[in-house]
């Protein structure tokens, strides 16, 4: 129920404000989509063309080329592998932190969260030097290794909180039935924490997919990911490359948008549910 008086005027104002918000939020995305679908001939029209016969030329050119499909496949490999690794490692660590008391657990937690507060650039130079020295430059494995470490603190932190909300009596009952703590994790915690695992998995996926600095520094040809690879179209300085830039941008954000809409349920409901508690 609302205590505010509803006049036709305030309702009109509300509708206008919401419309303005949506236009401001969505116009940049819409314009990028338009640019990706414009035929080369209308691309540079001033005033910009908003009505035209859309063509898929840029997408075809991008996907039939040598580079972009490779960048894209790299991004998928790195994001999926990192997500699986972080969620597995992170939930195991969180389980131990939440259920097994041990000496120095507070110190350990501090050292797990500490790197989260460092800007990514702080560790990049030693990492770069070490990777070069070990001959691991430009490899997907290297990216996965370091992206996993970048995501891990957040996953441990969130999952530790999540696992604490699972009734300990369930776990203790499983110990009485002869489960070891390690078995308890796989048989009790993993099924019960599935929604939490899915949520942190999606967050890790988005984070890794969006990563820029790490792949920029640690790759140069074979392992280049989509966000970094896209730059070659901006720096090309050739004419009419705009369509490719826009098409690449559309394809690059597609997986993130899908992931985010899946996560939306957790964001708008999960987060607020937590806030009420």
């Amino acid at each position: 129920m609302s205590l505010r008086r509803r006049t036709p005027f305030s309702r009109l104002g509300l509708a206008f404000a919401i419309a303005a918000l949506l236009v401001g939020t969505l116009f940049p995305l819409y314009y990028m989509l338009l640019t990706s679908l414009k035929p080369d001939a209308t691309l540079l029209d001033q005033p910009p063309a908003f009505l035209f016969h859309p063509v898929l030329d840029h997408f075809k050119m991008l996907l039939s080329g040598n580079s972009f499909p490779r960048y894209y496949a790299n991004s998928i490999t790195v994001a999926v592998a990192t997500t699986l690794l972080t969620v597995t490692l992170g939930s195991m660590m969180a389980y131990v932190m939440a259920t097994i008391p041990f000496r120095l657990s507070g110190t350990a937690f501090f050292f797990i969260l500490l790197p989260r507060t460092f800007p990514p650039i702080t560790t990049l130079i030693p990492v770069f030097v070490a990777v070069r020295w070990l001959g691991m430059m430009d490899r997907l494995t290297t990216l996965i290794l370091f992206e996993t470490a970048a995501c891990l603190p957040l996953v441990v932190w969130i999952m530790r909180g999540f696992i604490r909300t699972i009734p300990q009596s369930l776990l203790e009952a499983s110990f009485v039935d002869g489960c070891t703590p390690a078995q308890g994790f796989f048989r009790i915690i993993v099924p019960l924490a599935a929604p939490g695992l899915a949520a942190v998995g999606i967050i890790s996926f988005i984070d890794t997919w969006n990563a820029f600095l790490m792949p920029l520094v640690l790759t140069n040809f074979n392992a280049v990911t989509a966000p970094v690879g896209m730059l070659s179209y901006i720096n090309a300085e050739e004419e009419l490359v705009w369509g490719l830039v826009a098409a690449g941008a559309v394809l690059t954000i597609l997986p993130v948008l899908i992931a985010a809409f899946t996560l939306n349920r957790f964001l708008l409901q999960g987060l607020t549910a937590g806030a009420v508690k």
Partner: peptide, 27 residues
Amino acid sequence: RTLALAPMVITPAVVGMIWFILFDNTV
């Protein structure tokens, strides 16, 4: 609400490209 949240998850490098296009004098 969902639509209003969209920009938050967009890849930062792509945000750069989107505005690079929007700010450009010709396209």
